[in-house]
Simulated assay, not measured.
Amino acid sequence: MIQIPYFLGISAFADTDAVTENKLRVGYYANSFPDFSLADIQISVKLFAEELGESMGIPVNVMAYADIDRMSNDFSQGKLDYVGGSSLILATKFDTGLFADGFSLIRNGDYANSLIVLAQKQAGKIELKDLRGKRLVLAETDPLVDLYIDYLSRSVFKKSYKNVFKVMPREKKAHQVILKLFFGKADLICVHNYSYKLAIDLNPQIQDSLQVVARLDNIREGTGFFHKNTEPEFREYVIKKVMDLPNTARGRQFLEIFKSDGVVRSGMPDLLPAKKLFDTNQQLINRDIH
């Protein structure tokens, strides 16, 4: 577990006396997103805490966790007020009965909240069944992608993807995964659709060379929730302040760090698609075992 020290005392512009009596204790699971290395997460979360704490006028203590069980235990024991990370991790590794509304950074447009499998473009349509034994590359820290490619593999081949494809060494970031496919050093990849869109924006030739083999829409990459025992007035105060980030110049700069367009309130429905995919894949695993 890597601790990022809290900073900033309580400043004079907090809205109420009740708010100034609180501090925000945040836990963030570092191995959640393919666009950020552990070092990136530490820096970005620290910046997030600084911006958030300054705007709210409260002390913020942020911990970036590499051990999800420890993070979950700390949340259950009330040592954390807010947890953030992959929607899959939050849906399956935490007692969701302890969750109250939180907030999520969002990417707008048709490219948000989708997972895709990509292959090099060929004459005619390519299906997953045509890629058995081919070279697969994934990002190091992307729980949803791992789950989706395993679900597809079990659906089509009745085996884990590790027993179907030639799994190559992982890449640290999603754009490196896409470039691996683009330059012919892989045969298929699985990434978030927004990562593909960003890669196309940087190099339009990528879209001409690759094609989508499979796609899953309406599944949130990451989100965050307060502990239900967090004082409601304090919780709503924080959510309101965070959702106002896009309306300030510094807030917009911060969102750019995370390649995000805005902030929305998060609730339990945001976890349902990831939980459904997980449960369905578990059923396939049990089927394959028996």
Rank of each mutant, 00 (worst) to 15 (best):
I149S: 10
L136Y: 09
R154G: 10
I116D: 00
R154N: 10
L115V: 07
D130G: 06
N163W: 07
K159Q: 15
Y148D: 03
L118N: 01
S114Y: 03
K129N: 10
E127W: 01
L136N: 10
L147S: 06
D130V: 06
L118C: 03
D146C: 03
R154M: 15
Y148H: 12
A119K: 04
L131Q: 05
V137Q: 05
A139F: 03
E127Y: 05
D130F: 04
R154D: 11
I116K: 02
L128M: 13
R154Y: 11
L118M: 11
N163A: 14
R154T: 07
V156P: 04
S155L: 14
Y111A: 07
V164I: 14
R132N: 12
L138T: 11
D146F: 12
K121Q: 07
I126F: 02
Y151R: 12
Y111E: 02
A123P: 01
P143V: 10
K134T: 14
L147H: 05
D150T: 11
K134V: 05
R132W: 03
V117T: 09
T141Q: 10
V117G: 02
K129W: 04
D130P: 06
S153T: 10
E127Q: 12
L115T: 03
K121P: 02
L147C: 04
V156E: 13
A123S: 11
Q122W: 01
S114H: 09
D130T: 04
R135F: 06
V117L: 08
D142E: 07
K162T: 14
I149C: 11
D150W: 08
L138A: 08
L152K: 14
L115A: 01
V145N: 14
G133K: 02
V156G: 08
D146T: 12
V117N: 00
N113P: 00
Y161S: 13
S114P: 00
A119H: 03
E140Y: 03
A119L: 02
P143Q: 04
S160V: 11
I126M: 05
T141R: 12
I149R: 05
L144I: 13
